[in-house]
Design a protein around this nucleic acid. Structure first.
Lengths: 135, 135
DNA sequence: GACAAATGATACTAATATGGTATCTTTATA
DNA sequence: TATAAAGATACCATATTAGTATCATTTGTC
């Protein structure tokens, strides 16, 4: 049971690297060299991050990527949403069945609480926080 | 992104029903009637719960299942472990790469904290708690 | 003892998600 | 104008999830 999939993971690594870089742009080739991740796969991920407004891309020779928004405002939760869809711990298939009172499903309520907790925590972790202390 | 899979979900429902039942045994047929879940699939789940010591089974005509341990001691976390394996939110593929200091990976540390939190919460939800208030 | 109704064991299948590849197009710049 | 970059898109392999199907075994009842 995983909470973070490979693509989210790679995205985090790439963003950390880009955030730390002294250069104004970082190309996929550079990232692949350092991160040791399959190039075609990483390129797809970078393209998605670009479309979602997390990265800004520059085409042509000497092109590459840089952050479209400050590293302090890129959160794990955002990345997970992008690559893994919305966090829905369960979709309450319990309706009409276990719950005697449809309006009050304790299972859902309890799981929703956990979900809220997780989301809060994930929303507190930014790319900036990950790179600042050698993380 | 789901935390609870279908089989865990069905297991919870079945256990809630069995916990609430006045009879000393509940058969798969009864469960299917009430829970509206595919019979063959549910039977497989019940067999697993039996093997794992959560349910006790009775073969032959008039047979069925009942709880092998009190509902107060069956927790969501246990069921998730049985059907979804151990909760490992990430397996830290960051080693040597993003982390400059292998011994101190902030990503892992932060995610581990979240994991601890989730496990604590899941360990607080028992089948008994789910049925007691009409959940 | 035969039958029916239950679980046990086990193998198979279908659908979906995950983790990639491969290829061709477009753009910028030296 | 060649080259090195990203954009777009289609494809593929594997694993996981969800579910089926079948036969064997057990046990209560007539």
């Amino acid at each position: 049971m995983k909470l973070i999939t490979r693509d989210t993971d790679y995205a985090i690594r790439a963003l950390c690297f880009i955030a730390q870089s002294k250069n104004d742009k970082v190309s996929a080739r550079e990232l692949v060299k350092t991160l040791r991740v399959p190039k075609a796969f990483l390129r797809k991920i970078l393209q998605i991050l670009n479309k979602k407004g997390v990265l800004k891309s520059y085409k042509g020779q000497g092109g590459g990527f840089n952050l479209a928004i400050p590293a302090t405002r890129i959160f794990l939760l955002d990345l997970m949403k992008i690559f893994q869809g919305p966090l829905e711990l369960n979709q309450c298939t319990f309706k009409r069945v276990v719950c005697r009172d449809v309006k009050f499903c304790l299972v859902k309520k309890k799981i929703d609480n956990i979900q809220r907790l997780v989301m809060q925590e994930l929303h507190n972790i930014s790319i900036a926080a990950l790179v600042e202390k050698g993380g």
